[in-house]
Amino acid sequence: MRDQGIHDKLAFLRQAEKLKSVLRSAHTSTGRRESTAEHSWRLALLAMVFAEDLGDLDLCKVLQLCLIHDLGEALSGDVPAVDVQAHGNKGDSERQDLLCMTSPLAAPLRERILSLYDEYEAAATAEAQAVKALDKLETILQHTQGQNPPDFNYEFNLGYGRRYTDATPFLASLREVLDDETRKRAAG
Rank of each mutant, 00 (worst) to 15 (best):
V82Q: 11
V84H: 08
S76C: 03
S93W: 02
D56S: 09
A107E: 15
L109A: 05
E121M: 05
V62C: 08
G91H: 08
Q64T: 00
R95C: 00
Q129H: 05
C100D: 11
A107M: 08
M101I: 08
E119N: 08
A106G: 10
D92H: 01
R110Q: 15
Y117C: 05
A123C: 06
V62Y: 02
A128L: 06
D70P: 04
D53N: 10
A123D: 00
C66K: 00
E94G: 01
A74M: 10
C66Y: 04
E119S: 11
T125G: 05
C100R: 11
L98A: 11
Q64H: 14
V84F: 05
E121H: 13
D70H: 02
P108C: 04
L98Q: 13
A130E: 00
Q64P: 03
L114Q: 09
V79K: 13
V131G: 07
E94L: 09
S93V: 12
R110F: 07
E121A: 10
T125Q: 06
H69A: 11
A124S: 11
L63H: 02
H69T: 04
N89W: 14
D56Q: 08
A74W: 03
L57E: 07
D58L: 13
D97P: 11
Q129D: 03
Q129W: 00
L59E: 06
R110K: 15
Q85A: 05
C60L: 11
V79D: 15
L57I: 11
Y117P: 10
S76E: 01
A130G: 06
L75P: 01
P108I: 11
Q64Y: 02
E121T: 07
E111P: 01
D92E: 01
Y120A: 00
A51G: 02
D97Q: 13
L114C: 12
V49D: 15
P104Y: 12
S76W: 01
C100A: 06
V84Q: 13
L98H: 09
T102I: 12
D92K: 00
A124H: 08
Q96I: 03
D58A: 03
R95W: 02
L109E: 14
H87E: 14
A130H: 04
L59Q: 11
Q64N: 03
A106S: 12
S76P: 00
R110N: 13
D58P: 06
L67F: 13
E52W: 06
V131N: 02
V49L: 15
A86V: 09
T125V: 09
A123R: 01
A128H: 02
A107I: 15
L54D: 00
E111V: 00
I68K: 03
L105M: 12
A106P: 11
S103H: 13
A74F: 07
L116D: 15
D58V: 14
P104R: 15
N89P: 07
H87M: 07
P80F: 06
P80Y: 03
V62D: 06
H87P: 05
Q85N: 04
L63K: 04
D92S: 01
L116I: 12
L109I: 12
L65K: 05
D70C: 06
